[in-house]
């Protein structure tokens, strides 16, 4: 797959914009999933993951083809997500909710830090519950947990994506696991 990706990258660099669509096709689901798990909102996840692809396209000449493209792309994506989370205002969704909520239930609209009453949480479907619990994690634990257990990436790759030492990644995963454990055992 890497050989194909590098071939497409070379074509894009030569000015063949359409070659980029294969790259998008290959990585769209994984990148979207990371963004969705980080942001907990479908519209934002779509917007941010598309933005990540656009930035990857614009900065493609800076990509070192000896390295793994997915790592580079996920790094752009996670950075955009982290920026978005930091800028997010608590009442952001009150306006956004109304427009085209096709296929969205109310839980996908919940701001990540918001606490739900216990009874409500217990009534959540498993998948909504998972997203809710991930969303309650502090940002720095959320990103490592998502990359490790949902994307199933190696610790080494996570350290490259998040641009932090391996030791820090480990510490955050340990603390993230403990934080999740406490969230789950409280109920």
């Amino acid at each position: 797959m890497d050989a194909l990706v590098n071939k497409r990258i070379k074509q894009v660099l030569k000015g063949d914009q359409s070659a980029f669509s294969d790259i998008v096709n290959l990585y769209q689901h994984k990148l979207y999933q990371i963004c969705y798990r980080m942001l907990g909102n479908q519209q934002e996840a779509e917007d941010i993951s598309q933005e990540a692809f656009v930035r990857a396209y614009i900065n493609l000449h800076t990509f070192d083809q000896k390295r793994k493209f997915s790592t580079w792309l996920y790094r752009i994506g996670t950075n955009l997500c982290i920026d978005r989370i930091r800028k997010k205002k608590p009442d952001y969704y009150l306006d956004a909710e109304v427009a085209g909520t096709d296929g969205l239930n109310m839980y996908s609209q919940i701001a990540s830090k918001e606490q739900l009453p216990e009874e409500t949480v217990q009534q959540l479907e498993l998948q909504d519950r998972i997203q809710y619990e991930i969303g309650r994690l502090p940002d720095k634990y959320r990103s490592v947990i998502v990359l490790k257990y949902i994307e199933e990436l190696s610790l080494q790759e996570i350290s490259e994506i998040l641009d932090m030492p391996l030791g820090t990644v480990k510490t955050r995963i340990h603390r993230g696991r403990e934080a999740l454990r406490k969230q789950l055992s409280n109920l």
Binding site: S21, Y36, S49, Q50, F53, Q127, I134, I145, Y149, I150
Partner: peptide, 24 residues
């Protein structure tokens, strides 16, 4: 196990086309 049981999420339809339209 709980986190790993998260379903795989796929990008919404026409994602690729939308990205291509957004490219400069």
């Amino acid at each position: 196990a709980f986190v790993k049981s998260a379903a795989h999420i796929t990008a919404p339809p026409y994602f690729e086309e939308k990205v291509m339209k957004r490219l400069p």
